[in-house]
């Protein structure tokens, strides 16, 4: 097995100059493509918040056997991701908030709705397990989803 890996590695290394021309290689070395950026982190945290939020809300049926503890953990995780999304958003995109551009500005809408969504999710886990927390949670996840779509 190890031999095969070595042979394949050697072949790839040998083929490399043939696959990429000199200029491309130089380009790659001088300017490596942006790998995982702040924008990507912000994006995945937002997606994660919505995905786990939806799971937390839909997997749990009060009398259907799914345990409350899993529901709770998932909701907490969703909220943590939402707060993370808001935090990274404020950190790396605050310059996109242009109050004087008004409500027409999609970034202003995104920031307002995303922030409100995260607040509602936080409110929901703070209120749980009392009634009413479900509405806040769903509204929160919904606003987050809309917020993502607005600047998608």
């Amino acid at each position: 097995m190890r031999n095969i890996v070595q042979i394949v590695t050697a072949l790839v290394l040998l083929a490399f100059p043939l696959l990429a021309n000199e200029k491309e290689i130089e380009e790659q070395i001088l300017n490596p493509p942006a790998s995982f950026t702040e924008n990507d982190l912000h994006q995945y945290l937002g997606f994660g918040a919505v995905a786990t939020g939806i799971l937390a809300g839909t997997l749990y049926r009060p009398n259907s056997g799914t345990d409350y503890e899993t529901h709770e953990k998932m909701a907490n995780l969703a909220t943590a991701l939402a707060v993370g999304a808001v935090g990274t958003g404020l950190y790396s995109h605050l310059d996109d908030l242009n109050v004087d551009f008004g409500w027409r500005d999609p970034d202003n809408q995104h920031i307002f709705l995303g922030g409100l969504g995260a607040l509602l999710m936080a409110y929901s886990i703070a209120e749980a397990p009392d009634g009413g927390h479900a509405d806040a949670g769903m509204a929160g996840v919904g606003l987050m989803a809309i917020s993502i779509k607005l600047t998608w």
Binding site: G102, R104, D105, P106, D107, L150
Partner: peptide, 10 residues
């Protein structure tokens, strides 16, 4: 598209 809307808003 978003950047078009941003330009319009500005």
């Amino acid at each position: 598209y978003k950047r078009s809307k941003k330009i319009m808003a500005s």
